[in-house]
Design a protein around this nucleic acid. Structure first.
Length: 494
RNA sequence: GGUUCCGUGGCCGAGUGGCUAGGCAGAGGUCUGCAAAACCUUUUACGGCGGUUCGAAUCCGUCCGGAACCUCCA
């Protein structure tokens, strides 16, 4: 390992050296999507950021357990309706059909962008028993109270010994002054108290029986429950979008501390927002497009479609903690940059170290390459700086292209340097950044070019060529079929 | 109003005290049947003002401009 990994901890607001609680194990929990509609492009950015973080931690040799939840209940709208219930009523489907549909969609989208799946993907409904148990513990420990069939977290009680809002830097007095009036507020002792369990109104379709009444879990609870269950009451990294800092993550912390007296995560990482023309991309502002629309170009804000890897490359060209602004101009630049990268990697894979020594070793050349390889490690170690890493990758690629075109002879560097250059580039680009080749090569189109060639050879009575094409295609499982006025083909028997 | 963050060249975007980030675009060149690619060279920077320092895009103050969170969103 070269150097130490440092990351910006939102909890301390400082860049810290990463030291796992129990090396080589690393536990990472990331707040996943609420599956009530198509996955938002902002979610994609967040999950791609954590995909790279997951990949890099694994590359460093850590035994990572990456947990990312699926929220399938408890996430409410302003109106107090459950997001999933509402969509289910609207579409006249079972809530679980909604959940399944959008979970499938989510997985498909993430796979399109070459994100590795998490190691565990638990759902809230799948952990109702555990949620109820955690509520009981919080009641027993005096941090929660029952009120009209609901259970609320007691902020005043918590603050006697702890500090609610520590992560986001909120102060209780300020919060109280600004709290707006929400439905069900009259059941709370303090307007800041948040629901652990909510009594279901008669029309609410997602409901479960408990000793407090029929209801459903509060949104913040699931993450505390599932992170604790799979990663323990203390784990290494907790991640999510910046907009979850408050209240979601502060509530999560309160619940976990309320149960175990321990801060759940050692390091908190928050990804920044996507913007469009300088404004946050958000559903309510109507300035957002779906991942599918970005790929197809089917949106009024988009001049054209952009391939998934170009988009991934585009996102990784900024740091996860910075906002990233979308524009056609920036995306076009990314398409070109990605193409250059993909071509360089393709050339690199074909590049072989020569057997004949044509040049004497050039120590300077070798030193430069080793430095660039080191730079890649340092850049990723510096708070997963993918933008900087890509910069170094391009510098290495210049060498690769120069070797390829013969402007520098490969024998100017030694075999060890060559192998390191090759391995570093491939590992960082494909394994860590997760950028893979993307091609629209179409087998049938290529076949048709060959068949046209075949037809012309026939007309020219160039039977040597005709036989050659027929036998070569046969080897590829294609049988050429001469027809009266055309040339066709069929799959060969295998 | 409170909390937090940002302002880098034509565009995007790294960079927290001294060392050419990088990509796209522009200019010149090498190579080339044409074209493309690639490589080399090169132009344009750190919002304004003040301060700290031998030295600041980087630290401090201040002003201007923008954003996020405080309310569902990653």
């Amino acid at each position: 390992m070269i150097g130490k990994l440092r990351l910006t901890n939102s909890l301390t607001r400082k860049k810290e050296v990463f030291e796992p609680i129990e090396a080589p194990n690393v536990g990472m929990y990331v707040c996943g999507p609420t599956v009530y509609s198509d996955v938002h492009l902002g979610n994609v950015r967040t999950f791609l950021s954590f995909d790279v973080i997951n990949r890099y931690l694994k590359f460093l040799g850590y035994k990572v357990r990456y947990v990312r939840n699926i929220t399938d209940v408890g996430h409410l709208l302003d109106s107090g309706e459950d997001k999933i219930s509402k969509k289910a009523l609207l579409d006249q489907l079972e809530p679980m059909e909604i959940v399944q549909k959008y979970t499938n969609d989510f997985h498909e989208v993430m796979a399109t962008f070459n994100a590795l799946p998490p190691d565990i993907e638990p759902s809230a409904i799948g952990h109702l028993m555990e949620q109820i148990e955690m509520i009981e513990v919080l009641i027993d420990r005096g941090f929660a109270y029952v009120s009209n069939g609901s259970v609320y977290f007691d902020i005043d009680k918590y603050n006697e010994t702890q500090e609610y809002g520590k992560l986001s830097g909120r102060k209780i007095e300020d919060l109280i002054n600004q709290t707006r009036f929400l439905d069900g507020q009259e059941d709370k002792r303090n307007p800041l108290d948040f629901a652990l369990w909510k009594n279901a109104s008669p029309e609410h379709i997602m409901r479960w029986k408990t000793k407090w009444g029929e209801g459903f879990p509060g949104w913040h609870l699931e993450c505390s429950v599932m992170s604790t269950k799979y990663l323990g009451s203390q784990f290494d990294i907790h991640g999510g979008g910046m907009d979850l800092k408050f209240p979601h993550h502060d509530c999560e912390i309160a619940q976990c501390v309320g149960v175990s007296d321990q801060m759940p995560a050692k390091y908190w990482l928050h990804t920044n927002m996507l913007t469009v023309n300088g404004q946050k991309m958000s559903k309510s502002l109507g300035n957002s497009f779906l991942p599918g629309q970005l790929i197809s170009g089917d949106h009024e804000l988009l001049d054209r479609g952009y391939s998934p890897m170009s988009i991934r490359f585009f996102m990784l060209q900024s740091h996860y903690a910075s906002t990233l602004d979308f524009s056609n101009e920036a995306l076009n630049a990314a398409v070109k940059g990605y193409t250059k990268l993909a071509n360089g990697i393709r050339i690199l894979k074909e590049l072989e170290y020569p057997e004949a020594q044509l040049q004497t070793l050039n120590a300077n050349q070798g030193a430069q390459i080793h430095k660039m390889c080191d730079d890649c490690h340092h850049a990723m170690n510096d708070d997963f700086n993918t933008a900087l890493t890509i910069g170094h990758i391009f510098n290495l690629l210049k060498k690769v292209n120069s070797f390829h075109s013969g402007q520098i002879d490969l024998s100017e560097i030694d075999l060890e340097t060559f192998l390191r250059m090759k391995e570093t580039l491939l590992t960082f680009t494909e394994d860590i950044l997760g950028i893979r080749p993307e091609t629209n090569l179409n087998g049938e189109n290529l076949l048709n070019i060959l068949l046209q060639d075949y037809a012309q050879a026939k007309i020219a009575k160039d039977y040597q060529r005709v036989d050659y094409l027929r036998s070569r295609l046969k080897e590829e499982g294609i049988t050429i079929k001469d027809m009266k006025d055309a040339v066709g083909w069929a799959y060969s028997e295998q």
